[in-house]
Design a protein around this nucleic acid. Structure first.
Length: 149
DNA sequence: GCCAACGTTGGC
DNA sequence: GCCAACGTTGGC
């Protein structure tokens, strides 16, 4: 079963928000490579929930995919921050998935620590200049990160 | 707030 | 199809 990592600004949605909500829609992805990964997700896949653009960026917990991908409705909502004028109901290029809370780490694993792990050198998250917000995580990487909890 | 790196747009 | 300009991401 594939593993993933997805980034979220905690001001928008944090792992603690998800804990409270139990389940929510992961939308607003507007990058084709990231979207393609969303489209290959399956229910019950697990992912690391990463906090970005915040005082201490890092992996804050684990969540689970609960739906196959479907057209992202925010692309069609004019008032949405994620509105895309070129999208239509008939032709919506963007995808969303539903996700559920699994676990919040007592302490987020800081990006700075992840960068020191030789087992994670291939992970786009730690590569200089990488901005990919949805990425696959190998079983070995998953285990290496879990060991840092 | 700065800025490096990236993806996208659009003129040619 | 090239590539300069622009907007965005996201760490620091």
């Amino acid at each position: 079963m594939p593993y993933w990592l997805m980034k979220s600004e905690p001001d928008e949605l944090s792992i603690h928000d998800l804990q409270r909500l139990e389940q929510t829609r992961w939308d607003g992805v507007r990058n084709y490579q990231a979207r393609n990964f969303l489209r290959s997700m399956q229910p019950d896949d697990l992912f690391f929930f990463y906090h970005s653009s915040c005082p201490e960026p890092g992996i804050a917990g684990i969540a689970r995919i609960v739906s196959a991908s479907y057209p992202d409705p925010t692309a069609l909502e004019p008032d949405s921050h994620y509105f895309d004028a070129k999208a239509s109901a008939a032709k919506n290029p963007w995808s969303a998935v539903d996700v559920a809370f699994v676990e919040a780490f007592k302490r987020a694993i800081p990006l700075a620590q992840l960068k020191t792990q030789s087992a994670l050198m291939e992970l786009p998250l730690v590569q200089k200049g990488s901005r990919l917000s949805v990425m696959p995580v190998s079983a070995e990487e998953w285990a290496a990160i879990l060991a840092l909890r």
